[in-house]
Amino acid sequence: MSKSIEEIQKEIIAEFSDLTDWEEKFQYLIELGEELPTYPDEKRTEEYLVPGCQSKVWVAPKLEAGRLEFDADSDTALTKGLIAILIRVFSGQSPKDIADASLSFIEEVGLAKFLSISRRNGLYSMVQKLKGYAEKA
């Protein structure tokens, strides 16, 4: 049985609480981004591009056995880390759970507070893109 969105968010909050300053948190996000599987070149299209991000961010959904899985990539290290953390929360979940999810971890780990306004807007654009896929599924 896969973990719920809530359980995954709690894990992320715990991981971030072990990091003492923002430099460590940024480094951790960048490392998460580096762990993403290679994104397929044929999906680097307008269709999968997240609107409202300064960086280029692509997210492609796959529906398998009633659960959504996501591939993602970005052209900047920090943004790649942000999308990595979001797909960690959402991949393997049902479309309904994704659409209904409240992402408390974004506030709790301080991402909303620490990111620049343009990055924060980009983060929320990524969330909207992921939830949009869930609503269509």
Rank of each mutant, 00 (worst) to 15 (best):
F70K: 06
D21G: 15
E11M: 03
K131N: 02
V59T: 06
S2Q: 14
A137V: 09
G33E: 05
M126C: 00
L111N: 07
I8Y: 11
I106H: 07
F70D: 00
Q128A: 11
R120Y: 10
R44I: 06
F16Y: 15
K131A: 02
K62I: 03
E108K: 15
L130R: 01
L123C: 06
K80M: 02
S104T: 15
Y124N: 08
A112G: 07
E64K: 11
Y39Q: 07
T79Q: 00
E34S: 13
L123S: 03
F16S: 08
L36C: 05
S94D: 05
A77P: 10
D73M: 02
E24N: 13
L82C: 01
S102N: 12
A72P: 06
Y48G: 00
T45E: 14
P51G: 08
G52A: 08
V57G: 07
W58N: 00
L49R: 15
Y48D: 04
N121A: 04
P37K: 11
E42N: 12
L78H: 02
G132P: 07
E11Q: 15
E34P: 03
V50L: 11
V127F: 03
G110Q: 13
A77W: 09
R119Y: 03
A112T: 14
Q27Y: 12
K56M: 09
F114L: 02
L29Y: 14
I30C: 08
K3M: 12
L49Q: 14
E69C: 00
S125Q: 05
A112E: 15
Y133G: 00
Q27G: 08
I87W: 00
V50A: 10
P37Q: 15
T38E: 14
L103W: 07
I106P: 05
E135M: 08
L32D: 09
A72Q: 00
R44E: 11
A77K: 14
K129M: 11
L86P: 01
R67E: 01
F16V: 06
L68W: 05
V89Q: 09
G66T: 00
W58Y: 13
L86G: 01
A14L: 14
L111P: 09
G66R: 07
K62D: 06
F114D: 13
I106W: 09
Y133D: 08
S125R: 02
K25G: 05
A14H: 11
T38W: 00
S91E: 04
D100W: 03
L19F: 10
I13P: 09
R67T: 01
S116R: 08
F70I: 01
E24F: 11
S118D: 14
K62T: 09
K10V: 06
K3F: 04
K56L: 13
K80S: 03
P95E: 03
Q27I: 04
P61L: 07
L115T: 13
L32R: 15
A101D: 01
K96S: 06
G92L: 02
K113E: 14
V89R: 08
R119K: 12
E107N: 12
L82Q: 04
I98G: 01
I85E: 04
K3Q: 13
